[in-house]
Computed example of a mutant assay.
Amino acid sequence: MTDLSLDGTTVTLFGGGDAFDNQLSEELERRGCNTHQVTVPTGWLRSATHVVMRVDTDSGADALRGLSSCDEPRSHVIAVCAQQVDVSESTRFSDLCRACGAHHDVSLIWHPPMDPGSSPDDHLFPTDAVIAHDDLAAAIADEMAQHSAFDGTPSFMARP
């Protein structure tokens, strides 16, 4: 794990308020961030400049839809989603993130299901591959630190 500092950065986390969101908040706070969680669908918050959105949650999906119609202010967004069984759903998330990348810095991180029991949908994905909360939280925090250090043109990137 790369220990990139995010001192003083406020990160808005659109998620489900579950154990993973708490782990991610702890990781970001360990790196010097202030975090606040949004767990209900509120759309996009224009005041958010550094964002992690779990697009497979109600609040994250709603924030992504709102961001797609908001050109300013420019935000650093890490969209996170468990790999989808439904290919059309994966394509929809990717297309929305790509559209947002025209005006914002957007990274889409796909991940295998999390630890058994961490998500009610784990049994829907036909694989034995799982990812630990702390590994995923560290990868997201690393990505946020890289975004924060970059002040170039808006961009979109997807990666596993």
Rank of each mutant, 00 (worst) to 15 (best):
D3N: 14
S5H: 08
S5G: 04
D7I: 08
D7A: 15
G8D: 08
T9N: 02
F14T: 00
F14W: 15
G15W: 04
G15F: 07
D18V: 04
A19M: 05
A19L: 14
A19V: 11
F20L: 03
N22Y: 05
N22A: 15
Q23E: 14
L24K: 05
L24T: 01
S25D: 04
E27Y: 04
E27S: 03
L28M: 14
L28V: 05
E29A: 10
R31S: 03
G32V: 05
G32L: 13
C33M: 07
N34M: 12
N34P: 00
T35I: 12
V38G: 02
T42F: 05
G43R: 11
W44C: 02
L45D: 14
L45W: 03
L45Q: 10
R46I: 11
A48P: 05
T49A: 06
V52I: 15
V52N: 10
R54Q: 13
V55W: 01
T57K: 02
S59L: 07
G60Q: 04
A61V: 03
D62G: 07
A63P: 01
R65P: 00
S68E: 14
C70V: 15
C70P: 00
C70Q: 12
D71N: 07
D71V: 12
D71P: 03
P73C: 13
H76G: 01
I78F: 05
A79Q: 06
A79K: 02
Q83A: 06
Q83M: 12
Q84I: 01
D86A: 09
V87G: 02
V87A: 13
S88E: 13
E89K: 12
S90K: 11
S90H: 09
S90R: 14
S90Y: 00
T91V: 12
F93D: 00
S94C: 08
S94Q: 12
D95T: 12
R98M: 14
G101E: 02
G101A: 13
A102C: 07
A102S: 11
H103C: 11
D105L: 09
D105A: 07
V106C: 08
V106S: 07
S107A: 09
L108E: 02
I109Y: 03
W110E: 08
H111F: 08
P112C: 10
P113Y: 07
P116F: 11
P116E: 14
G117A: 11
S119H: 08
S119Y: 09
S119T: 09
S119A: 14
P120Q: 06
D121S: 14
D122F: 04
H123K: 06
L124F: 12
P126R: 08
T127V: 13
D128G: 10
D128P: 00
D128T: 11
V130K: 13
V130S: 08
H133N: 14
D134L: 03
D134W: 04
D134S: 11
D135T: 14
L136I: 07
L136D: 00
A137R: 03
A137T: 03
A141E: 00
D142H: 09
D142A: 10
E143F: 01
M144D: 00
A145P: 02
Q146N: 08
H147F: 15
H147I: 03
S148Y: 09
F150N: 12
F150E: 09
D151H: 15
G152S: 09
P154T: 12
F156E: 06
M157E: 12
M157I: 09
R159M: 15
